[in-house]
Amino acid sequence: MDRKLVVSSSPHLKTTESVQSVMIDVLMALFPAALAGVIFFGAPALITMVLTTVSAMVTEAIILRQKNIFGDGSAAVAGLLLAMVLPPTVPWWLAVIGGITAIVIGKQVFGGIGNNIFNPALVARAILMASWASHMTNWVRPVDLATAATPLALGQRAFSFTDLFIGAIPGCIGETSAFALMLGAGWLFYKGHITWRIPGGFIGTVFVMGFLFGGYSGAMAMISAGLFHVLAGGVMLGALFMATDMVTSPVTAKGQLIFGIGCGLLTMLIRIFGTFPEGVMFAILIMNALTPLIDNKTLPRRFGEVAK
């Protein structure tokens, strides 16, 4: 800081936190899930992660004409998050186009960091999905990488809950391991970057709807139907890392709860009644679009304001 006097209105809050430090925290939080992805899906997963992350960082550096390729770290987060929601075996060019798309269309066309309406990684995934659906649904089994269908397509009995929890199931690179995701999210809770409201609302709603819509078949079976919907597919990753994106989710406490419940509701509506087996991506994108409205409607009343 070379200026001695900064003039602004109150309140004045001093913190050592910067965009870069938050982004490094997020990257650290993503590490367990990324590691789990590499363990389960091997070299292809690692290559995909490197490609999306590097292409996103390079694109951002070129657009902003900055020399430091890491910059504030937000491009690396967007790139890595994108890799998390891609199947492990996507072709190299698809990963690169995804990284570029996330930065150009997901973020920079809106005016860069802090101005984007939608989560950049999910925007890129939606565009890739609309363009190369067959590559984007080419799922493989962990370890031996043979082609397989996802648990959501196969139904509840195909995999044990242990497999679902540690992530030894077909799926996107970073979404399979609930355990690794929770470990990473714990770090973000500890640092105070996310609150319980969005993930709680999201996961809770998915559980309740899975519980109710599985048909009546005894308490235990219904609970496991709810758990299945939480653990299979992208709900854990979406709820803990995507929906909690600070830029694209509401800032008010009540708003965050509404946002989380909305995400869960839409996810389950798409899963149960929609044409796609998985609905997390569209649910979060739709709720992203509603964020300004939610913020606006849940603004805390000013002290002394008279109710209308």
Binding site: A130, S131, W132, A133, S134, T137, T275, F276
Partner: peptide, 10 residues
């Protein structure tokens, strides 16, 4: 096939 609404690409 004259008209359909199947998932594009799949």
């Amino acid at each position: 096939v004259v008209a359909h609404t199947e998932t594009p690409g799949i």
